[in-house]
């Protein structure tokens, strides 16, 4: 148990908050990579998911690929990409590997968000004279949003966890002190960093949990028909 006391000492040591490789810098790097990956991943997967949900095209392979992608070991893929792309461009390898990790949950959220909308609602909107774009932005998007954000939440969770591993090739993030500490048996910095990652992961998850509630349209909330969180989780 005293290792936890050491880890706490390490966490509160003012030395770890200044200069190169400080805890603060590592945390910012960690969150920075996560946000980058989420931005790229969302730009690819959310429109694609909407398209699939809207048209129903490619539904079969979407389900197949998102299932199979879960088995892909991101750490191995990352190291492979580093060798192929080149060590000097390892940031790009990291972003590609992590984007591939983020796409399946994002795609599933966007696709199922549109897919679960009651067809009668869409028919009613069309009957009121809405154009295709109006339908997309004023009916489908708001109704799909809770599940889309749920997908983002799942993706963030996995990306935050996996950014830890990119330190293996000397990139930053909070994994740095863990991976560097293992051969040195520096349990204080390993456990301290692990603790910091857990805190960041929990904070980000709480933010997206709150966001899921906020984006649930008033009408859906009042109808109270479904527990969005339960739906989103059963998809994991």
């Amino acid at each position: 148990m005293e290792v936890f006391a050491d880890a706490w000492q390490w966490l509160v040591d003012p030395q770890n908050y200044v200069g190169e490789g400080s805890l603060l810098q590592r945390s910012l790097e960690h969150v920075g990579y996560t946000l980058w990956v989420m931005a790229v991943g969302s730009a690819i997967a959310i429109p694609l998911g909407f398209y699939i949900g809207h048209t129903g095209r490619g539904r079969g392979w979407t389900v197949g690929i998102t299932g199979a992608a879960r088995a892909l070991p991101t750490f191995g893929l990352f190291l492979y990409l580093v060798l192929v792309i080149g060590v000097e461009r390892r940031e790009i390898a990291a972003v590609i590997a992590l984007v591939l990790l983020a796409i399946p949950p994002l795609l599933a959220g966007a696709y199922s968000g549109v897919d679960q909308i009651d067809r009668r609602v869409l028919d009613a909107a069309r009957a009121q004279g809405m154009t295709g774009w109006q339908l997309l932005f004023r009916v489908e998007l708001p109704l799909a949003l809770p599940l889309v954000v749920g997908g983002i939440r799942n993706a963030v969770l996995q990306v935050v966890a996996t950014v830890t591993l990119i330190a293996y090739v000397g990139l930053g993030g909070l994994g740095y002190d863990i991976i560097q500490g293992i051969p040195l048996r520096r349990f204080d910095q390993m456990i301290g960093s692990a603790f910091a990652i857990v805190v960041i992961a929990l904070l980000l998850d709480a933010v997206f949990a709150a966001l899921t509630r906020i984006v649930t349209p008033e009408g859906v909330r009042r109808a109270g028909g479904e527990d969005i969180r339960a739906r989103e989780n059963s998809r994991r």
């Binding site: 148990m1 966890a161 996996t162 591993l165 863990i178 349990f187 692990a194 857990v198 929990l202």
Partner: peptide, 17 residues
């Protein structure tokens, strides 16, 4: 849900002690 949030490498480091 909280356990699910903990990154694996962090868990590998936190469990032994």
């Amino acid at each position: 849900g909280i356990f699910y949030t903990i990154p694996s490498l962090a868990l590998f480091v936190l469990l032994p002690p």
